[in-house]
Nucleic acid binder design. Structure first.
Length: 610
RNA sequence: GCCCUAGUGGCUUAGCCGGUAGAGCGAUGCCUUGGUAAGGCAUAGAUCGGGGGUUCGAAUCCCCCCUGGGGCUCCA
C-alpha cells in the first residue's frame, strides 16, 4: 500500500461520474467539505491482498502516528490509484479501505472515507508545515511482533527417560554442552573462521564461483568425486531401507495453489524468476515428490511408501552474511527421503527406523552427531512414552525442545548435528513428521474400508546436505589435529580421491611404478604415479599435503621384487608388504562403501593444479 | 538487513604517518637421476578488490560499492 498524507486547512470534493467499479453511495456522500483534515491518499496494491488485516493494522498505526503529531480534526481516507503501478483488485481495495475506516472509528477518530470508483473534483489546501506532506509505503509486516509475543520453547536434557534442566545438567559430553549453549543462544564466539573453508580450497575440492551468485560453488575433480561417492553411499543406504529413487524438476509454477502455499511458508528465502510464468526454484525435493504422490494411487497395503531424491540442487536465497563455506550455501545437494505413512502410529514406527538409519550414517562416515529432539507440547503430552523410547535408539543424552504450539508443518522432528572446530553445530540429518502436506497437496490413500484418507508424511535426510557432510569431515580433521598435533589429518580411505601414490626415484623405475599402479588399479584402487623429476623428499611431502593414505617409493631395491615398502599415513609407519596384502588391507578399509574410479590423470606430470 | 574486520601475482604475505610494489610457495626452463616431509640456478607472472575524490604524485588519506570472515538476526 502506498499512502500520501496531506495535512490541509480544508478539503472539498464532488463526485462527477461513475466508473465501472464505482461503489454505491447515498446522496450525502456525493460531496463534502472538511476543515483541518489529514487527507490520506491511498493506493491499495496487489501485495496487500495476501494479508489484508496486517496491512490495515499497519496503515492505521501509521495514520495514528502522524495524527498524534499534527492533531487534525478530521481524517479523510481518499482512494487514489495513481500512487502505484501495481494495484490490487477493486474489491480488495474497497475492503481494505473500509477496514481502515472502521479501525480508525474504533479509535474514536473522526474519519470519513471518500467514495471509491468515482471521478471526483477536489480542492485541497495544504498547510505547508514540515509534517504536512508525508508519504509512506506500507508492506506486510514481518512477523517480528508476533514472534516476540510467542511463548518460548521449553528446553530439557532427555536422558534415559528422564528430563533435566539444561543449565544445571552435568554434561559428560562436551559436544552436547556446546550444542545446548548454541541453541539457547549462550555461545561465546572466538571470531575465527571455520577451518574447512581453507581446507576445501587447499585440497582442491571446491571454491567460490565469483561469476555466480554468492553461495554457489564450483567443484574440482577431487571434490566432485567425493560428492559422487557420498551420493552413491546415500543412494545405497536408502534403497536398503526401501526407498524408491526418483528425479523431479528443480523449478515449479507458483500458479499451482499447493505449490504457492508451501512455497510461501518458506518466506523470502526463495529464488523466484521474473519470467512470464511466475516460477520458483525448489528449496527441497518436497514439491516434486508430493506431486508424484498426489498423482499416484496409494492403498493401505502399499504403505509405508518411500520416495528418494538427491536434490542437485536445492536453492535457498539465504541472506548475506549467512552464507559460509560448506556450512550454509544457496545452492546445495540434499538427500531427501519422503515416506508416506497411514497414520501417526505408523509414522512413529517409521521414525524409529529412520533414527537407526541416521545413526548409521554417523557410524559409516565416522562423524559424531549430537541430537535435538523436538515436539509440540500436544504431541509430547500424548506420546511421551514413545518419545522416550525413540530417544533410547540414539543411546545417549540429547536436547529436547517442546514448542508450546505447532508453528510449522511438523509435530515432531529430530535433528542431528556435528559440532565444528569452533564448537558450533553443523545441522546434518533430520527426520520430521509432517501432518499438513498430504492435505495441501491432495495426497491420499484408500484405507481398509475403501475410504480415501490423508496420510502422514515423514521427511528425512539421512545425512543432511552433501556439502555439510564434506564440511563436517574437514572440520573433524582440524579438531583431531588440535587435540593431537602429531595426528595426520586425512579423509576416510573410501573417500580419499587418491588412495595410493607410487613414487619412482629415477626414470629407470618408471615402468615398474606404472605397472604396479596398473595392478592396483585393476583391483579398484585409486592410484597415481608421481613421475615428475623432483626429489623423493619433495614427492613424499607433496603426497602428505594431498592426504594420500598410502605412499610407495620405488627404487633399485624394489625393482622386480614382490614386496614394497608402504608408507601408511594414518600410523606414520613404513611397512614392508606384498602388493596383494596392500590391496587386501585397502579393500577391508573400504568394505561396504561405494567405489569410483580416479577422475584424474595417473601421471602427476599431466595433472592440472586447481 | 545491521555492526565489526579484512581484501597486494594462482596461494601465503611484506610495504600502509603519500614518492609509483618486495619475498616465499606454486608455475616454466636448465642443472641435478636421487632412498622417505621443501636440491640448485634462472625466467615469467600484480590494472595493489572495483569506482570516485584529495594531491604535483595514492597500495598508503577520504567517500561509495563489491567480495571474504566474525557477530546480531535467520536456517519452514
Amino acid at each position: 500500500m502506498r499512502i500520501l498524507l496531506i495535512h490541509s486547512d480544508y478539503l472539498r470534493y464532488k463526485t462527477k461520474s461513475k466508473t465501472k467499479i464505482a461503489e454505491k453511495i447515498e446522496d450525502e456522500k456525493k460531496g463534502g467539505e472538511f476543515d483541518n483534515a489529514l487527507v490520506v491518499f491511498t493506493a491499495v496494491e496487489r501485495e496487500d491482498e495476501k494479508d489484508a488485516d496486517n496491512i490495515i493494522e499497519s496503515a492505521v498505526s501509521e495514520i495514528m502516528n502522524v495524527s498524534a503529531q499534527v492533531k487534525p480534526d478530521n481524517v479523510i481516507i481518499y482512494p487514489y490509484a495513481h500512487l502505484s503501478s501495481s494495484l490490487s483488485s477493486p474489491d480488495a481495495a474497497k475492503n481494505i479501505l473500509k477496514g481502515m475506516e472502521s479501525k480508525l472509528k474504533e479509535k474514536d477518530v473522526s474519519v470519513s472515507r471518500i467514495p471509491f470508483g468515482w471521478y471526483k473534483s477536489f480542492e485541497i489546501s495544504c498547510k505547508g508545515h514540515p509534517l504536512s506532506e508525508l508519504s509512506r509505503t506500507i508492506t506486510v509486516k514481518p512477523k517480528e511482533e508476533e514472534k516476540a509475543e510467542e511463548e518460548p520453547s521449553k528446553w530439557y536434557i532427555l536422558s534415559k527417560g528422564e528430563l533435566h534442566d539444561p543449565e544445571g545438567y552435568e554434561y559428560e559430553n562436551e559436544d552436547l554442552r556446546k550444542l545446548m549453549l548454541y541453541e539457547l543462544g549462550k555461545m561465546e564466539s572466538s571470531g575465527e573462521e571455520p577451518p574447512h573453508v581453507k581446507l576445501m580450497r587447499e585440497k582442491g575440492l571446491s571454491d567460490y564461483e565469483p561469476s555466480a551468485h554468492v553461495g554457489h560453488l564450483r567443484w574440482y575433480p577431487k571434490g566432485r568425486l567425493i560428492r559422487d561417492l557420498l551420493s552413491d553411499y546415500v543412494y545405497n543406504l536408502v534403497t536398503e531401507y526401501g526407498a524408491m529413487p526418483v528425479e523431479t524438476p528443480i523449478m515449479y509454477d507458483l500458479a499451482d495453489e499447493a505449490i504457492r502455499t508451501h512455497a510461501d511458508k518458506f518466506g523470502e528465502r526463495q529464488y523466484r524468476m521474473g519470467t512470464k510464468k511466475e516460477l520458483m526454484l525448489r528449496f527441497a525435493c518436497c514439491f516434486g515428490a508430493f506431486r508424484i504422490l498426489s498423482d499416484s494411487f496409494l492403498t493401505w497395503k502399499n504403505l509405508p511408501v518411500g520416495l528418494y531424491e538427491l536434490s542437485t540442487y536445492s536453492f535457498r536465497l539465504e541472506k548475506r552474511g549467512e552464507v559460509v563455506g560448506l556450512k550454509r550455501l544457496r545452492g546445495f545437494t540434499m538427500p531427501d527421503f519422503h515416506s508416506v505413512c497411514r497414520d501417526i502410529p505408523q509414522s512413529m514406527e517409521e521414525f524409529e527406523r529412520q533414527i537407526t538409519m541416521c545413526m548409521q550414517t554417523g557410524d559409516d562416515l565416522n562423524v559424531n552427531y549430537e541430537v535435538i529432539f523436538r515436539a509440540t507440547q500436544d504431541f509430547f503430552d500424548e506420546n511421551k512414552e514413545w518419545m522416550y523410547k525413540a530417544a533410547e535408539k540414539v543411546g545417549k543424552p540429547m536436547l529436547l525442545e517442546i514448542l508450546p504450539r505447532r508453528k510449522h508443518y511438523w509435530i515432531s522432528k529430530m535433528d542431528f548435528a556435528a559440532i565444528d572446530y569452533l564448537g558450533r553445530p553443523i545441522e546434518n540429518p533430520t527426520i520430521q513428521i509432517d501432518v499438513e502436506s498430504a492435505e495441501r497437496f491432495d495426497i491420499n490413500y484408500i484405507n481398509e474400508k475403501e475410504e480415501e484418507e490423508y496420510p502422514i508424511i515423514i521427511h528425512c535426510s539421512p545425512t543432511g546436505s552433501i556439502e555439510r557432510v564434506i564440511g563436517s569431515l574437514l572440520e573433524k580433521t582440524a579438531i583431531e589435529l588440535r587435540e593431537d598435533p602429531k595426528k595426520m589429518p586425512m579423509l576416510p580411505v573410501w573417500l580419499s580421491p587418491i588412495q595410493v601414490r607410487v613414487i619412482p626415484i629415477a626414470e629407470r623405475h618408471f615402468d615398474f611404478a606404472l605397472s604396479l599402479a596398473e595392478y592396483l588399479k585393476d583391483s579398484n584402487i585409486r592410484v597415481d604415479v608421481d613421475e615428475r623429476s623432483e626429489t623423493v623428499g619433495k614427492k613424499i611431502r607433496n603426497a602428505g599435503k594431498e592426504w594420500v593414505p598410502y605412499t610407495i617409493v620405488i627404487g633399485d631395491n624394489e625393482l622386480g621384487k614382490e614386496q614394497v615398502t608402504v608408507n601408511i599415513r594414518e600410523t606414520n609407519e613404513k611397512v614392508l608388504m606384498d602388493k596383494d596384502e596392500l590391496i587386501a588391507r585397502i579393500h577391508a578399509e573400504v568394505k561396504g562403501m561405494p567405489v569410483r574410479k580416479l577422475p584424474l590423470p595417473v601421471k602427476l606430470s599431466k595433472r592440472v593444479n586447481f
